[in-house]
Each structure stands twice: as structure tokens, then as C-alpha cells.
Design a binder for these strands. Structure first.
Lengths: 193, 193
DNA sequence: CGTAAAGTGGCAGACTCTGCCACGAGGCAG
DNA sequence: CTGCCTCGTGGCAGAGTCTGCCACTTTACG
């Protein structure tokens, strides 16, 4: 499964993404062409589009990784916990991750903010990811009488809370980030139905 | 302010958008080129891009109109109302609007769902719109001690609630839509605070 | 009227992305 | 080890989006 061929491919993919981000940070997303990235990463443009569906797709990668982290936490959570508690812990973990990569994430954020195009498109978390989380939660308690829309609403609000926290944190306007995050997630949990 | 020139321009813009939507619905977004739209609307491609920043921009128009409707409601709301109550009323009005344009909005939704590209990009409401609402609310009560992030969280959750309601409604899975919408908005309001 | 301002269309060009085909390197028997 | 087979890669051509530039027409205003 992890032959030389696959390892080489993955290595080149990561290297291409890193090269792309380096150029984006240096010159801004709009001033970097696919050809530039390919020249720097020493691959053909045709190959670039085999790794990434589009130039935008490179930007979407970090979001994918972060949602994957949350999904992983939810999957590994104690089945006895409520949905709200599960999400709270999962996003807390994501918060810890973000704290540990502040400089890097801050740079990515700057790239997105400075590009007209990216500001419009890569604004939030795609709804499919939220749906994915909701489905995972629903499967944990199959005989729950809770209407499905409440679950989806809880997920959406948790995501929204995290997004707002994320923005504030990267702007450096929060004194005690993790406590604030906990406060925000608690605000959307509503344990008392 | 509304000279012949402006009226002509607006008329052509609307006509172009309608033509574009008609083609999108007939053939699907991906199977319609800008040239197709221009031929049907009898304008030059160069002119199309003076009306709309991009082909995607035509799709973004309805969302713009709907957010504008909410902003208008918020601006016109009784200053004595709380933020939560203001948003509840505003989104209720939007709900009524949606109920009255079900077939049309359903068609637009189908177009977006059937296009790979649109599914990725035109997923949700751009954060700037949320920020706009938050700012409007903040100006209503300048001497409010409420931390700003609570306001932004309330707005984001309200938007999220509406989005979920909107999806469910267009899928026809709600018995009493407006009641459900009220229920969802109440769930994110947290009157006890 | 006559001049300024603004909308329109045509043209060339940069850029993104895809289908197609040929080539070469990794993988897999025998 | 050898020959075949698969799969990643690169080059090429072409469609499609979007922009800058310029000339032309229409509207606005003194």
C-alpha cells in the first residue's frame, strides 16, 4: 500500500503545496500563477492539476486538515458523552492545535485576506463538512428522540463559534484564548434544551 | 439620480441575469458559457463583465438580495428591541419572503447543487455580511456592556439557523415552516442572559 | 448646441483547467 | 532476472474566464 511509487507521489504533493504557500506568502495569491509554482516545485503544470483540482484547492487544504482533526476527535470520543460535550471537547482540541501553529496559520490567513478572490470563495467551512459531523453524531445515539435539525443546528453553531474565535485569536485580541473558546462553545451548547 | 442612462443600465443588467438563470436552469451551470448568455441577452461578452464580476457573480446575486432584505429589516426595527428579538423578526421576514418564492428559489438551489464548482464556492453566507449585521446591531446600543463577540456569535448562529431551515424547507421536509423557523431562531437566542 | 462623462463593443492577451497521447519508472509474475 | 503491466508524468492543443486598452456611441449638462 505504501510502495515507493506512493511515497514519491505524496512527497511531491506536499512539496508542491509548501512551495505554493511560500510563493503566496511572498507575493500574494493573485500574483502567483500555476506556472510559477510549477517552476519552483519543478513539476509540469499538467502534473500540478493532478495533485490539486485547482489553484484554490491548495488553499482549501488546511481547512480540510482542520475539519479532519475535529472529525477524528468526535470519532474517538467517549460514547457516553452528549453531542454538545463531544463537540466541545473536539473543538477544544482544534483550539489547542491552532494555538500551537499560530504563526503559520496567521500567515495563511493573511494570504486569504489579501486576495479579493479568496475572500469571496474560501470564506467559511463547506456545509458538507458540517453534515458529516452531524451524521457522525447521529450514529452515536441511534435511538435518540432528538430531532435531527437540533443536532445540525448545534454543529453549525459550534462551527460558527470556532470560526469567530479563530478570527479573533489570529488578530491577537483575546487575553485567554482557550478560556474564551470554552465560553463560546458553552454559549451555543444550551444543556437545558 | 435615476436618469435614462441608469434605468437603461439597470434594465439590461436584470435582463442579463434573468437570461443567465434561464439558461442555467435549462442546461446546468457548467454547460452554459458566458458567450451563450451574451448571445441570448444580446450583449457583448465585454459588457457582461461590466455588469457582473464573474459568471459566479450572477449566482451570488440572490444571496446578496436576501441579506440586503435582512439588513433592511434590522435597520427598520424598533430600537427598543433586543438584538436577539431584532434578528428573530428580521429572519422571520426573510422566511416569509422565501415562502413566497419557493419555486424560484428551489430552481436556483437545484442549479447550485448540480454544479461541482458552485457546490464548493457558493456554499454559505460570506462572513462580511455577518460582520455588517453585527455592526448594525452594535450601533443601536452604543453604551451596551455586552462583549462584541457575543453579538457576532448571535448573528452567526442566527444565520446558521436560517441556512439549515432554508435547506430543509426547499427539500420539503417541514410541516409548518414558519413555526419551525421560529423554533430554531429561539434556540439560538438564549433569552436567559 | 457643444463639450464632458459614461456605457458599449471589439480585440488581443494572460491565465486556469481538461482531454488526449506518448514516454518512462515502479511493480509483479514466472 | 526478465518481460509485461500499471501508473504517474509531461507535452500539446483547445476551450473558457476575465482584463486592459481603445474607438465609438449615447446621455447629461452648462
Amino acid at each position: 500500500m505504501a510502495g515507493l511509487r506512493d511515497r514519491k507521489r505524496e512527497r511531491n504533493r506536499v512539496l508542491t503545496a509548501e512551495t505554493a504557500w511560500r510563493l503566496f506568502i511572498e507575493r500574494g495569491y493573485d500574483n502567483v500563477t500555476v506556472a510559477d509554482i510549477c517552476a519552483a516545485a519543478e513539476i509540469a503544470p499538467r502534473t500540478f492539476h493532478r495533485y490539486f483540482a485547482s489553484k484554490d484547492d491548495v488553499v482549501a487544504e488546511p481547512v480540510r486538515q482542520m475539519t479532519a482533526l475535529v472529525a477524528k476527535q468526535v470519532a474517538a470520543a467517549d460514547p457516553g458523552l452528549s453531542d454538545a460535550e463531544t463537540l466541545r471537547l473536539a473543538f477544544h482540541e482544534l483550539g489547542v492545535f491552532v494555538l500551537g501553529h499560530r504563526d503559520w496559520l496567521s500567515a495563511l490567513r493573511t494570504v486569504i485576506e489579501q486576495s479579493h478572490h479568496l475572500r469571496d470563495t474560501h470564506a467559511g467551512v463547506p456545509p458538507e463538512r458540517e453534515q458529516e459531523l452531524s451524521t457522525m453524531l447521529a450514529k452515536r445515539h441511534p435511538d435518540d428522540a432528538e430531532p435531527d435539525w437540533r443536532r445540525r443546528l448545534l454543529v453549525a453553531c459550534s462551527v460558527a463559534a470556532f470560526r469567530i474565535w479563530y478570527d479573533d485569536f489570529l488578530h491577537g485580541t483575546i487575553a485567554d484564548p482557550l478560556e474564551r473558546l470554552g465560553e463560546m462553545l458553552a454559549a451555543v451548547s444550551r444543556p437545558g434544551r
